[in-house]
Design a protein around this nucleic acid. Structure first.
Lengths: 418, 418
DNA sequence: GTCTCTTAGACCAACTCATAAAGTAAACCT
DNA sequence: AGGTTTACTTTATGAGTTGGTCTAAGAGAC
């Protein structure tokens, strides 16, 4: 008669307690930086004994390292603990429409190197993508001198929806309709693989290291060629039933409005997507076949100078205001981070105006509770965000590091600090 | 340098293990109905010994009761356990614009009785509301013969936003702007109080007992005089930063469109709210000053008969389709439940058409993954939903029952089963 | 140079909880 | 009446946290 699926009836054992406390300490060190056992105890609420105990495990696993002592004025000096960055290498991959970008990081997500591979013009074949990633990782490991460090895992951000119920990738822009990329990569690389939509990984990068820092409820608005959003609720990415939540670009804001490339009408993207802006600016100035990015940049420079730009800017700001209003009313975030190349290109000139229109389209209280800011990481943080997927798994304790490689760690570390 | 607030650094102790497992067993019994220890062990994955142990605690607390045995063919028969409904009384309150409805339930949320109190026409004074609730509860306890059973708590659904960061209620429709209703009620009643927006409590009622059963990601669309939504993500109500998430009625779907009563333009509510539909139908048929509900009902009957209704119905369906498309694209639910008196009145005639328009405004895959269904509980389940807030607290183990009252329970039970 | 004070961290007994296996209870069957 | 089957309970064990006590390590005072 009632709702059983609503139930969360997972059994919990004492082991889960340890995992949770390990995770709490690791997160504290990762996000808060190096600190002593004593501080860890204060901040987590755990007793000193437990901290000593858990830290001993983490030291043995090589996940955490002691990094000198703090000066003290009387009394035994505190030993500083930090994430053992050199313990393993984390790879982040950005699968774009024409190229694959592979970046290597240490466990603290400091970048060790990057490689680009072109994978064809319209719709890269999955096999090519997989092979390119494998090859680029090998190249990176050689170049960065981290041959000896084990790979902790590979995170992938792909422009499309990754359905986590069936592990298939769907992407109109690269012509994939149900590609089992996660399985293919796992077979090829034989290390843990985490995949998500690129907009979501970029969003997570902004949340961890960019303009989203400190917010627990935030939306990262991705204004690029397409338009999307990554919504974070209580620090967690909101995925929905089949992880396609956040398709903000295709929220209708004008019933019966302009045709969108998705086949619908009146989508936000049809007004504020890079392709739409470029199209309209070309129409406005009567021509030119310049590339999308050039055209949008030219439009940005013309704002405040060319009256034709003024009209388009005002309209664009109003439509973006409506789109932001939707985010504010439906998600009630404390912050909206504007990212993506269009957002970063036009943001400085348009953001104030967009805020004004958002005020008009959002309810008063939620609008007053939100701040709208520009992203800080640039448009290329998809790979970094993808790497955070792996690190998140490690911090949560559901992704184990491979054994070994620990001995070489100190040597590797010198090599990397160039 | 990085994001500390993102961290979830709560310490976990062995006590939490017990709480979690208690909660798992209680949820199993509440949502799945009465069953034996053995079944509980299988379904939760806990060992038999632990189930015995935890159940012993629950029996001692009076939260669970043994209810006879199952027939067996050889072997010791299974003892059936059930939620001890008569252990305590749970109160659900619906604070509307002109009246307060107070309903009493047992712990299994079977209704024991209901009382209505008028509290003034435009904007009831908070003091009057609080006093009415207190008085109605006393009356209910007398009438239902549950004087002896302790009150577990009071849940309240109020038409407005309840900011859980400051505990204040904001509601334009009843003219409250920062009323500390939770604190006032706690002082008056001296038992636990849980408050939330009425649309959200109704949504939770549909999720627990209505058309939302079995779904973990769902949106309950509330079409009444106003328009709102309660979104559930992974079984949990989505609240946002200050619990005003889900203000779907004021999502702009027509930039620069019709004026809404909220002061903005082009809101969904301006097309699909009860007040808007009534207004437009009166315009269409040229007059009449009938009440809103009568007018909407008349419009519903005219669909398919009167060509003037046809035009309005088609337009309404398209705007609702755009609104549903927004829900589908942004939240990717597996189900949308249409509730509220307007939704239930017009739903049967309009739902197919609305689905068609939703298909046009939503992305293909998320649309294919969602089902749009009518609510099952009627428009008056706000109080029931409010009571679920209290029961949820008990099931989660963060709301303790008062001591005593246990002895009388069996007697009370007879009295109630009338 | 030694003593004392202070502080960090390690160690240990007590307690909580889940598990698994052995034990007991309650039915039915022959 | 005894055997069999099944459901539940008890017990021993191991994992984990807590809080008190002990030791290590530095600073300052005499």
């Amino acid at each position: 008669m009632t709702n059983l699926a609503y139930t969360r009836a997972r059994r919990v054992t004492v082991r889960d307690v340890r995992r949770a406390n390990q995770s709490a300490l690791l997160r504290q060190l990762f996000f808060g930086g190096a600190r002593s056992r004593l501080e860890l105890a204060e901040q987590t609420g755990l007793s000193g004994g437990t901290v000593t105990n858990v830290v001993a495990d983490l030291l043995a696993d090589g996940l955490v390292a002691e990094a000198g002592t703090e000066d003290s004025d009387g009394g035994r000096p505190r030993t500083i603990l930090e994430i053992a960055g050199a313990r393993a290498v984390v790879v982040g991959v950005d699968v774009g429409e024409t190229r694959v970008r592979v970046e290597a990081f240490d466990l603290g997500l400091r970048k060790l190197g990057a490689e680009d591979r072109l994978v064809g013009v319209d719709g890269p074949a999955p096999e090519v993508v997989v092979a390119s990633i494998g090859e680029a990782i090998s190249a990176l490991r050689r170049k960065a001198g981290v041959d000896g460090s084990p790979l902790a895992g590979v995170g992938v951000g792909v422009s499309g929806v990754v359905d986590d119920t069936d592990g298939l990738v769907y992407s109109a822009s690269i012509g994939w309709d149900g590609v089992p990329l996660p399985a293919m990569l796992r077979r090829e690389l034989e290390i843990p693989v985490r995949i998500d939509n690129g907009a979501k990984t970029l969003g997570q990068a902004e949340m961890w290291f960019g303009a989203g820092r400190g917010a627990r409820n935030a939306a990262v608005a991705l204004l690029g060629t397409g338009v999307g959003a990554a919504v974070f609720a209580d620090g967690q990415l909101y995925r929905g039933a089949h992880s396609s939540a956040g398709e903000w670009g295709h929220a209708p804001i004008v019933v019966g409005g302009r045709a969108c490339r998705c086949g619908s009408r009146g989508c936000l993207e049809g007004y504020a997507g890079g392709w739409a802006i470029a199209e309209r600016w070309r129409d406005a100035i009567g021509g030119g076949a310049a590339g999308e990015e050039q055209t949008v940049t030219a439009f940005g420079r013309a704002i405040g100078v060319d009256p034709r730009a003024e009209a388009l800017a005002e309209e664009l700001a109003e439509h973006l205001g409506a789109g932001f209003g939707t985010l504010v009313n439906l998600f009630n975030p404390e912050r909206i981070v504007v990212a993506g190349w269009v957002g970063l290109t036009l943001g400085p000139a348009l953001l104030d105006r967009v805020r004004d229109h958002t005020r008009a389209y959002a309810l008063r209280r939620p609008f007053e509770q939100v701040e709208i800011v520009l992203g800080e990481l640039g448009p290329d943080a998809v790979a970094l965000g993808a790497a955070t997927l792996v690190v998140d798994g490690i911090l949560a304790g559901d992704l184990a590091l491979p054994r070994g490689g620990q001995r070489r760690a100190p040597a590797v570390r010198e090599a990397l600090s160039v």
